[in-house]
Design a protein around this nucleic acid. Structure first.
Lengths: 204, 204
DNA sequence: TAGATTGTTAATCGATTAACAATC
DNA sequence: TAGATTGTTAATCGATTAACAATC
């Protein structure tokens, strides 16, 4: 038992899991830290060290059962279930998220999408009916939803974050290009394509 | 002069820049490492250390001129210009990227969007006419475009990456949920919402 | 000047790697 | 068994922090 596994290790587990799922799709059953590391550009030692924080998942001389390791990483990351999420903002980005097929089989599902514009509330995005932002807190509480995604303009994002927290959300994925303040018990991740692009232009 | 600035430092500069731009929008002119750090949840010492890798941008006793610091970070990151980009894949995500207003004033512009589906080639996404994927390499070369964004299904992403590289692209932002292999002189960044979500569910 | 904040050094802290005994 | 690969330890490497002289 260990209550202090480094955040950076947790951050790599989803990467391992994604590659393992791909290997499984390729019909593979066994891999090794060396092979997985080569495919990901990560050292074999690091992969073994990371995994050893949680248990012993391999066999000396053989390697890892892909299925067994996937199952265990899913359990560690708590994606051995399906998490319902809400999307706030039904513009281009919010709509793309709501319709995204890639959540399936990876532990997530969009439950509701919200907007504040009366002109689009009640209309459909994919199979979802756009809900009134004013009913966000109520719907979050009623459905015990713990994950919210923010896809509104920057100037509206903090207000949305506050409402998500008020509704009981404790994990937020923010697509708005702005830093948010949330209570320390709420997890927060950012997706801002410009940040990623600027990390590359330095090297061009 | 220093040819070996840590990658992790480069990774923070866009975060600093984004917050500085926000301060500027608020009408602010001066800040300090302490204030910037508090707004970002980063220690003041780290901000000063990071910036000192590139020069002396502050004044003792006063702090940093927001505009001056922004200008300098823009130069360091080479976003004191506008980079033309291509988007490959005109589905929900590709279309949302092509129409995204957030690139403006941050150093980037979408120039072209491509798809391989004959049914949508020639139709419009926002103000862009969807181009034939088969003309990607030619258009990249003709326009000397260095940045590509991949918004196609996972199974098609490696082929798209190969074509981008063939056309001379040296920075790729990949929205497909798959690891890509590119030559070592090509920079690569990933955006996969599921990876970010799985980094949070561990803590829920 | 007095107060404040930088830029920088040295110390601390944490993460990665190399190596190998254990063992399948 | 012989070969291969794990899990783990200790060493190395790198990043963060604390502290403070310099100076605006």
């Amino acid at each position: 038992m260990n209550g202090s596994i480094p955040n950076i290790v947790i951050g790599r587990l989803p990467i391992y899991l994604r590659e393992l799922q791909r290997m499984a799709e390729e019909g593979r059953h066994i891999t090794s830290s060396l092979e997985l590391g080569e495919r990901l550009g990560i050292s074999a030692a690091q992969i073994r060290k990371d995994l050893s924080q949680f248990g012993e998942f391999g066999k000396q001389g053989t390697g890892y059962s892909i299925e067994f390791l996937m199952d265990n990483i899913c359990k560690i990351l708590k994606v051995d279930r399906v998490w319902d999420m809400v999307v706030v903002g039904a513009g281009d980005i919010g709509s793309a998220i709501a319709r995204y097929q890639g959540f399936t089989n990876r532990g997530f599902r969009v439950g509701y999408i919200f907007d504040i514009d009366p002109k689009i509330i009640g209309t459909k995005v994919g199979e979802f009916i756009i809900q009134d932002f004013n009913s966000l807190v109520e719907i979050l509480r009623k459905n015990h939803i713990k994950i919210g995604m923010i896809a509104v303009p920057g100037w509206a994002a903090q207000e949305v974050a506050d409402r998500l927290v008020e509704g009981g959300v404790s994990a937020i994925l923010n697509y708005a290009p702005i830093n948010l303040n949330v209570p320390s018990n709420v997890r927060l991740q950012y997706i801002d394509p410009v940040i990623h692009l600027q990390r590359m232009t330095y090297y061009l």
